[in-house]
């Protein structure tokens, strides 16, 4: 079985159905991207996987264990294996950059403080923020905050990393610094599930790409298949439209 296995997953906001039978899998070390029009349910899928929103049908299996989202223990076990980076970074405003990165590993996962700090410094160095350890998030640019958020997620040593439109809140000139950081990670053999509108980045970094519309995965395949030889009309239509506007 795949590392992350999703079967027939459904969810809704009140009476509005946003996920309508998602089937998707991510292997160990694999990078899978979700593309599709806004409102297709991509971000909602990440919310459901992380337990921020309850599914109303279907099954999520993580590392061989089915996740029961109404059971606190089961959800905690699943959250121990994953990490997510949000569109709006969501850093803790009352903590320095370093503390943001170390707080969960030390106080929640009870790892050795010195080792965690060493790792955090190394990660922050890698994302190019080694000189910003003791500043607060609101003193950083959006791109810098997002790189801190990535370091924070990685310091948890997750087995899978979820990225939710991590560049869409950034100024255009900040986008590449964040994408370059993620490109580096992709070489690290960590499983990733990416929601993004940056098509050239997605094509570059993914092993497989899933096209979503109307709360379902319409087509899944290699980047070449999705972008150059789409098998369904809807995918062809979507890819054709975004390549025309020049992404």
């Amino acid at each position: 079985m795949s590392f992350l296995d999703i079967h027939d997953l459904g969810a809704r906001y009140g009476s509005l159905r946003v996920l309508d039978g998602i089937d998707l899998s991510v292997e160990q070390g694999e990078v899978v991207s979700l593309i599709g029009p806004s409102g297709s349910g991509k971000s909602t899928l990440l919310k459901v996987i992380t337990g921020l929103m309850k599914p109303d049908r279907g099954r999520v299996t993580l590392a061989g264990a089915a996740v029961d989202y109404s059971n606190r223990k089961s959800l905690k076990a699943a959250r121990d294996r994953l990490a997510i980076v949000f569109q709006q970074y969501n850093l803790f405003g009352n903590m320095t950059v370093l503390r943001n990165v170390t707080v969960a590993p030390t106080t929640i996962k009870k790892r050795n403080r010195r080792q965690v700090e060493e790792k955090a410094r190394e990660l922050l160095d890698r994302v190019g923020l080694g000189d910003k350890l003791h500043v607060y998030p609101d003193q950083l640019s959006g791109g810098q905050q997002q790189r801190v958020a990535i370091a924070r997620a990685l310091c948890l040593e997750p087995e899978i990393l979820l990225l939710d439109e991590v560049t869409s809140a950034l100024d255009p000139e900040r986008v590449s610094e964040v994408l370059d950081t993620i490109r580096l990670l992709a070489k690290d053999n960590i499983a990733m599930l990416i929601v993004s509108h940056e098509m050239s980045f997605v094509r570059d970094v993914s092993h497989r790409i899933a096209f979503m519309a109307d709360g379902r995965v319409q087509e899944i395949g290699s980047p070449e298949q999705i972008f150059d030889n789409p098998q369904t009309d809807r995918t062809r239509d979507f890819v054709g439209r975004i390549s025309r506007v020049g992404h």
Partner: peptide, 8 residues
């Protein structure tokens, strides 16, 4: 939400 996902 970030705190919740990190198992706070």
């Amino acid at each position: 939400e970030a705190a919740a996902v990190m198992n706070f």
